[in-house]
Nucleic acid binder design. Structure first.
Lengths: 114, 114
DNA sequence: TTATCATATAACTATACACTTATATAAGTG
DNA sequence: CACTTATATAAGTGTATAGTTATATGATAA
């Protein structure tokens, strides 16, 4: 067992949380980039409330944090969170999604709202 | 990204599968020990159908395999499965449950049925 | 053969979950 | 100020999920 180890309860809770393609992708992106809600709406082509609700689940366990900048709210991974070492290990096993952001930039929609 | 990497679809599907405390514990135990259904019934103090259904989900994606020995069916992790490298990395982050089996042995129930 | 043990499966139930629509809040903009 | 933009939240809906009880299957034992 590695230094990122945690109890079974916590581990299964976190795996379930990341066991959703949208949330897993969000966290993978947020690990490297700050994003606001409207960008995720673009990336995942999903309704704004749906995106907000996923972000809330991530925020409720402290995995992501939000920062308001004017009318936008930027999300990022909370690397100080007690579970981050665990999450970090899992994210290493998952493909990069930088191309998704790059695509937004090319479309000019990366900062459509931000 | 590490050699255990897989696509997002697969990753989230597997994380969801392990995002259940019972299944996560099962796989962690089966990684090191063959077990039969009745042992899991003891360990998790859960009904036999419930245990069987969890094992079926794991078997359906090929994570565990079964081998009949007389009237018992022994399960073990299928280390040849394409997803095993991914699973292995996750299991490294999770505490050992050897004490649970040890407890069964002490009670004499480890091989109550097997 | 009948009985028993180990396991699987089917049918049902209650809860959790992801998503939708509608509405609220909060910050800019004209 | 009213209007728009960005986001959150509430309420409702359909489906997935984990568990239950009941039954089926398959092997061994009497």
């Amino acid at each position: 067992m590695v230094k990122a180890a945690i109890e079974m309860d916590k581990a299964s809770m976190l795996l379930k949380l990341l066991g959703d393609k949208t949330r897993l992708s969000m966290v993978k992106i947020l690990e490297k980039h700050e994003c606001c809600v409207c960008e995720f709406v673009e990336i995942f082509r999903m309704s704004q409330p749906s995106i907000s609700q996923h972000l809330r689940k991530l925020r409720d366990v402290g995995l992501v944090k939000e920062e308001r900048k004017g009318q936008w709210i930027f999300y990022s991974v909370n690397k100080g969170n007690e579970y981050y070492p665990f999450i970090e290990q899992i994210l290493m096993l998952v493909p990069d999604l930088d191309d998704k952001l790059k695509k937004l930039e090319e479309q000019g929609t990366r900062i459509s709202c931000c």
